[in-house]
Design a binder for these strands. Structure first.
Lengths: 166, 166
DNA sequence: TATCGTATGTAATATCATAACATGTCAAGC
DNA sequence: GCTTGACATGTTATGATATTACATACGATA
């Protein structure tokens, strides 16, 4: 029952109560599924749990391996389909730069995240980026483009790694 | 010698003088290479030309195929290395969402581009997005993240395709 | 209980990317 | 001129990521 504090490769660069944030995100995902009539089936639920537990960006094959160990299907589409569902529902995000997926830390709440990927420790921080999205919307408007999905990703060094590198 | 106007899948959604923009980008890439002491060798030069000529996002294997036809190497690293060079020099961009590359329309000039990808016609528009980058920098600053590279990509419908879909 | 839509599973394959190593090219220094 | 070292190009082989096509199961509902 003790909170699982972590300072390393996590979805945020700060120490935090991992068990709490994971449980909370899961609870919200359940409530949202219920509300929307989306079917959070066992594979999908377990996939989200895996993302939340690992607390980092995982490749589809990493997820698949865990699912297979637990008696779910062993073939790639099993993982890709579950992950796709989670992304569609806003319960997870796809990090294109890493060919990987992370659990969303704020499912349901209006949020337009940007991702900051540390090239040293591989941690991925999901930051609220309302202003970035607004600027993006404006740029789209200028060229008459109708945005449907957005990926905002930056590669660099997180604070801890930058200090360590000095 | 007549300018090659195009209204379909292009690097911008607007009609424009393709021959002009391609030649101009090539000339700037040459000048910049000279200035920086970067070696714009035959494969690299030809790779850039291929991107400029096609005027859309091309996968590494698309590029490779053309290079191979013209007597260059036939194996993936040939294309990936040339493309990597171009991206490093700022002569091309990598579009992660498409696993593809496009020639940069503004090599050398300070620019922080965002990419707008039409899911209908597959055209990719490179838009100046200074404001988006500024917002991104600010978000990074808040979490103490040192940005090195950024990918700003949006998927949606370009103006022409949105009208056609009505 | 028949049917339809959706979800899950499999096999097979397609697509994208890199590691490891051999050869070629060219300029700097002896 | 030759050697050396840095870099570029090429190859083989393999790894990593993702999708297509099809079979089976499940659940709601008419």
């Amino acid at each position: 029952m003790s909170p699982n504090f972590t300072a390393d490769a996590g979805l945020a660069f700060e120490r935090h109560d991992h068990a709490h944030c994971a449980g909370s995100a899961m609870a919200r995902a359940e409530a949202l599924s219920e509300a929307k009539g989306a079917r959070l089936t066992p594979v999908r639920r377990r996939t989200l749990e895996i993302l939340l537990e690992s607390h980092r960006a995982l490749g589809a094959y990493d997820v698949l391996e865990k699912l297979a160990e637990e008696g779910f299907g062993k073939q790639p589409p099993v993982a890709y389909r579950a992950l796709e569902f989670l992304v569609e529902q806003g319960f997870a995000h796809r990090i294109r730069r890493l060919n990987a997926f992370t659990a969303c830390m704020n499912p349901g709440t209006a949020h337009r995240p940007a991702f900051f990927i540390c090239r040293s420790c591989s941690a991925v921080a999901e930051a609220q980026a309302e202003a970035v999205r607004t600027a993006m919307d404006r740029a789209a408007e200028e060229i008459g483009f109708a945005i449907e999905r957005v990926n905002l990703e930056a590669l660099g060094l997180c604070h801890a790694c930058a200090e360590a590198a000095e």
